[in-house]
Amino acid sequence: MSAPIVVAERCSKWYGAVLGISDITWTMGGGVIGLLGPNGAGKSTLMKLMSGLLRPSRGTIKVHGGDPFVDPLVRRRIGYSPEHETTYDELTGRELVTALAHLAGVPRAQAPAAAVAALEVMGMQGAMDRRVKGYSKGMRQRTKLAATLAHDPDLLILDEPLTGVDPIARAEIITKIRALAKAGKTIVVSSHVLYEIEALTEDIAVIYRGQVLAEGNLYEIRRLIDHHPHRIRVECDRPRALAAALAGADHVRRITMERKAVVIETEQPDRCYDELATAMLDSDFVLRGMTSPDNNLGAVFEYLTGDRGRARASE
């Protein structure tokens, strides 16, 4: 793992009596890290703390070794894109990004060129001389992202960058973010939509009720979850017969019938896959498809934010 870029130690933030994040101890290295959690989980609070917009109520958060709330040198290395889409609507895209690039430390003479370069990266060169007021949500998001990277920061903090954008813009933004990561930027991206994070990275931190419930690679997270059932959905010609063949196995926790498929929940995926293969061959089942819904982050998220996740969080 690369040197830590963000280090939170027992970091808590309250808004009056409302809890933002609670006692988070978390270290983040490079690459693309997805913050996953439902609305109100604390993702935006954590990102604002990282960006220097908020200061912790208790504990500390360091970015590149410094306190982002008090240290402008730290903030110079950060590009933050907020969740909301409000910007300076009176300005054109070019003027907006130029002004924000200059305020971020790009010399005044170089700011226009830096802005145009960033807008080109985000595919906004064709609309950059129109006022932001007339932009679609996707164009606003891309302009915000251009403003985030115009001063060439090391760390990009993108709060829900895909919210409200249409599928085409979504795909474009995902491609751009991936390209930025490939170019060596460290990117923290948040979403409450599972497949958005999944499309961007496998390295995630799951946040719920102000706490980091789990972090790491999707598969590492799964290992953290004791007794988390693995689901295998098998489409075949005789799903009921297949279900009967596996019903007695001790590792099978539950079998659910669908119209043309059977979903098996098992605590021992490897054994289950072996026995499935054996049953298929022995009884000449015609396999039409086999998927593991658990490979989608949704299963992990549901589990972690479900009752057992809550129990875990309160421990």
């Binding site: 604002k48 960006s51 220097g52 917009l53 402008p72 040198l73 903030r75 110079r76 950060i78 933050y80 907020p82 909301h84 409000t86 910007t87 300076y88 924000l100 305020l103 971020a104 430390g105 403003a147």
Partner: peptide
């Protein structure tokens, strides 16, 4: 109120 302050506060300026 519009939260555009986030663009300014996250930048390296007092």
């Amino acid at each position: 109120d519009d939260k555009t302050s986030a663009y300014l506060w996250s930048r390296a300026l007092p």
